[in-house]
């Protein structure tokens, strides 16, 4: 319930036009990875905290808040098939409603899977809390 924090690297973000889908997220991750490689910028080291409230990311060097995404804004999460150390989620931007796909590089495939499973657990707990509240 209190959430779990993972040390990941934020590779980038791209806009998508659907809230979910394997092909869609694979294409989005491909775009993000290509852009990151082209820019040769080092991925930003972040503390990635998952809880039934949502996902909070902090910049690990400055401790600055980067993203605070409510669990109700997140539609989908996945470990990319091709880049299997990459975890990605799709969320709706609270201000303009656009759908964003954010991708994170994990140290190992196992870590990417652990992040995805933890986010999935947060989805389930949030759903149970929502049903109780309804």
């Amino acid at each position: 319930l209190e959430g779990m924090t993972f040390n990941l690297s934020h590779i980038g973000m791209t806009l998508v036009d659907q809230p979910k889908g394997e092909e869609l997220s694979a294409a989005a991750v491909k775009r993000i990875v290509a852009t990151a490689k082209a820019s040769r910028k080092k991925p930003q080291k972040v503390a990635f905290k998952v809880s039934p409230q949502g996902i909070v990311t902090l910049d690990r060097s400055t401790n600055k808040l980067l993203e605070n995404v409510s669990i109700y804004r997140i539609s989908y999460c996945t470990v990319d098939k091709l880049h299997d150390k990459v975890f990605a989620y799709i969320a709706q931007n609270t201000f303009n409603g656009t759908l964003e796909c954010h991708a994170y590089l994990c140290s190992k495939r196992k870590v990417a899977q652990a992040v995805a499973l933890t986010v999935a657990q947060a989805f389930t707990v949030a759903f149970e809390l929502w049903q109780v509240a309804k």
Binding site: P19, K20, E22, S25, A26, I71, Y72, R73, I74, S75, Y76, C77, T78, V79, D80, K81, Q92, Q113, A116, L117, V119, A120, F123, T124, A126, F127, W130, A133, K134
Partner: peptide
Amino acid sequence: NSNTIHFHNPVYQKTTED
């Protein structure tokens, strides 16, 4: 085969009547 790991969020866009 889709051995990718992916999860849909059942509370996506559910409003919180708080």
